[in-house]
Amino acid sequence: MSITSKGPRRDASRGGAPTPQTTESQTGASLPVFVNKTPNRARWNDAKKKGEPFAFLAPVIVLIGVLMVLPIGIVIGYSLFDNVITNKNPELVGVDNYIEVLTNPTFIAATGNTLVFTGASVVAHLVLGLAFAMLLNTNLLGRFSKAIFRTIFVLPWLFTVAIIAVLWRLLLNPSGVVNFLLSGVGLADQGTEWLSSPELALATVTFINIWAGYPFFMISLLAGLQGIPGELYEAATVDGASWWQRFISVTIPQLRPIIISMLLLDLIWTSQQFALIWLTTGGGPINVTEMLSTFTYKLAFSRYEFALASTSAVIILALSGILAFFYVRHQRARD
């Protein structure tokens, strides 16, 4: 009812000069209200009220601005100059850098390698992650056994990239354990150069990345599997569905939202993998394991071509942005 009385009273207590007037209530009765006589103060109050949400948002806006918008803007700006950082007076060259990078044979090779590396890794992460998650979700094992297997399966996820790289470099050394074991059963030669052979290197680093990344899928899918109501499987069994039919018609549809989210995130992460490649092969031999990330790093820190490196980074950002767009759209569709 007399909803307007509180504000003016507060102003009055601060020295304003509210004057009682009348207005019509919803019932038509005349009620006394106070209207502030000083329009500046009213405007100030109004602005303060409107500005309050922005004040609350300000820390986040400042952080996003400083940590994301500004650096991204600077890198995009750098990509339009002939060279920056090492050049005191850079000149604007427009899209020349983009043409140079996109027509660079190494960039094209790196794009192809990144596609193979990412595609194979993501598919294998999903298949292995789902397989291990289903094994761990079985009722045939006791809790203790499940805990042991869960610990073993999740181990690769606990290692840092540097440890993974050192570990596999040692294991895959031509005179290392892997060759010793495989040659013992006649599956490989004693001196097989897993990381140094141009024929094997890309497949080998992809394998290492698969080994390092599948537990993330496994844990997420296991959580999803545990959330599928048992009634759905019971109903399917009653309807005479085989194991495969239950998997295709119950398990997969129930896991679909998680699978799609994980696939998109993994695509983004794997396409940006740098440390593993750098520490195992450095992009070699020749350029068979050169990725977009290592290509960009070399432009910046080996050739000191920071403008070209920025250009390459912007191209990667755009490609990741496309994947991020689909991810966000998928998340919104879910909500």
């Binding site: 031509p174 150069e193 990381l195 140094s196 195992t280 031999p285 020749i286």
Partner: peptide, 20 residues
């Protein structure tokens, strides 16, 4: 020594130190 294309200096020292 095999693995030359991805061998680093520290790998070389290790191989030499171990008599390989």
């Amino acid at each position: 020594a095999p693995g030359a294309f991805t061998m680093k200096e520290q790998d070389m020292v290790e191989e030499f130190t171990n008599g390989r």
